Amino acid sequence: EAHAAIDTFTKYLDIDEDFATVLVEEGFSTLEELAYVPMKELLEIEGLDEPTVEALRERAKNALATIAQ
């Protein structure tokens, strides 16, 4: 499951495998979680700032909209 989540994140969020791995290690496994989890939870991840989190959430929401079509 972790590998599938990493693949999904790299494909749809335009991030590298290392960043995707950090997200999975922090407990995220779906685009929905990244799109809708409280921003505070993402900001608790070391190295993430508000602009990065906002961009990540926007990419996740856009990916979900694209997949739904």
Rank of each mutant, 00 (worst) to 15 (best):
T21Y: 11
A55H: 09
D18N: 12
L23K: 00
V22P: 01
V24P: 00
D18C: 09
K61G: 05
T21G: 10
K61S: 07
T8P: 03
E17L: 12
L23T: 00
D14I: 03
P38F: 03
E54Y: 02
G27F: 03
D7M: 06
K11M: 07
I15P: 01
H3G: 11
I15A: 02
T30P: 01
E44M: 14
Q69G: 13
T52D: 07
E41D: 13
L48A: 05
V53D: 01
E41I: 11
G47V: 06
E33Y: 05
E58N: 09
E25G: 11
E26P: 01
T66Y: 06
A35I: 14
A20H: 01
F9R: 01
G47W: 12
L43S: 05
D16K: 06
L31C: 02
V37F: 11
A4H: 13
A4P: 11
A63P: 01
L31F: 04
V53Q: 03
S29M: 15
V53H: 02
E26G: 15
G27C: 03
E33Q: 11
I45C: 04
S29R: 14
A60W: 01
L64N: 02
L56P: 00
E1I: 10
G47K: 07
T52A: 11
D14A: 08
F19T: 10
F19N: 03
I15H: 00
P38L: 04
Y36L: 12
I67Q: 07
A60Q: 01
R59A: 11
T8F: 11
L31Y: 00
T30V: 04
I45D: 01
T66I: 14
A20Q: 01
L64K: 02
E41C: 11
I67W: 00
A63W: 01
M39T: 12
H3K: 15
L43N: 05
A2H: 14
R59K: 15
D18G: 15
L31T: 01
F19L: 15
T30D: 04
I45R: 05
R59M: 10
I67P: 04
N62K: 15
I67R: 06
G27D: 01
E1Q: 12
E44G: 14
D16Q: 07
K61V: 08
E26W: 15
D7N: 09
V24R: 04
L23S: 00
D18I: 12
E33M: 08
Q69R: 13
N62R: 15
A5W: 08
A5N: 07
Y12R: 00
E25R: 14
A35K: 02
R57Q: 15
A20I: 04
T21L: 13
I67C: 05
E44P: 05
E26F: 15
